[in-house]
Design a protein around this nucleic acid. Structure first.
Length: 182
DNA sequence: CCCTGATTCGC
DNA sequence: GCGAATCAGG
């Protein structure tokens, strides 16, 4: 995907509004945040006040660069391969609500657990189904998962209940773990 | 771990 | 010019 005039214009607009590089990358689609950052630098519109530069810049010389160890590079490659381009992955990450003139402050938590469609799920969004498959409003929890699990904390507890707990609590009701309702 | 931007350099 | 890999930091 090339940097067409339209895409550059959108990039400039969003960057000016304070969107982060990764947010812009997701919005544009088919580009990574690295591509976005690279582009804003080439455009000469990079934030010049961002991260405090290291007090010892000599550490960044090419001589200090690592020769790219095979194992580490391969690990990176594998990760990228496992999750190739996630264009639709928009989670609960806060984005600037409106154009902020100065330095945008990101909100810690906004709209957590917003229901997501299947395509919007990623490695760290809760996959607890909400509603019934096939229904127009069928969706998934979308909350941040407990690391290494498919569900958020709340739904993890629902999914893996000890039999005794289930029996004690469920008395009379029938809640199917595999196809729960919201 | 999640994320942020900055930089280098092979392409 | 492009952007992955890497770095440095929150």
């Amino acid at each position: 995907m090339a940097w067409t005039e339209e895409r550059v214009a959108l990039l400039k607009k969003l960057w000016a509004e304070g969107w982060s590089a990764s947010q812009i990358a997701r919005e544009l689609g088919e580009v990574t945040r690295n591509a976005v950052i690279g582009k804003v630098h080439r455009l000469g519109i990079a934030r010049r006040d961002a991260a405090p530069r290291p007090s010892r810049p000599e550490a960044r010389t090419s001589a200090a660069r690592k020769p790219a160890t095979a194992s580490k590079s391969e690990a990176r490659a594998r990760t990228a391969e496992a999750a190739p381009a996630r264009p639709a992955a928009r989670t609960q990450t806060a984005r600037p609500v409106a154009a902020k003139p100065v330095i945008p402050t990101r909100y810690e938590v906004v709209e957590r657990g917003k229901p997501l469609s299947l395509m919007e799920l990623n490695d760290r969004t809760c996959k607890w189904p909400i509603g019934n498959p096939g229904d127009a409003d069928f969706s998934f929890c979308g909350e941040s998962v407990v690391s290494g699990h498919p569900y958020c904390q709340e739904h993890l507890l629902r999914a893996y209940q000890p039999a005794s707990t289930r029996r004690d609590r469920d008395r009379g009701r029938d809640e199917t773990p595999a196809l729960p309702n919201a």
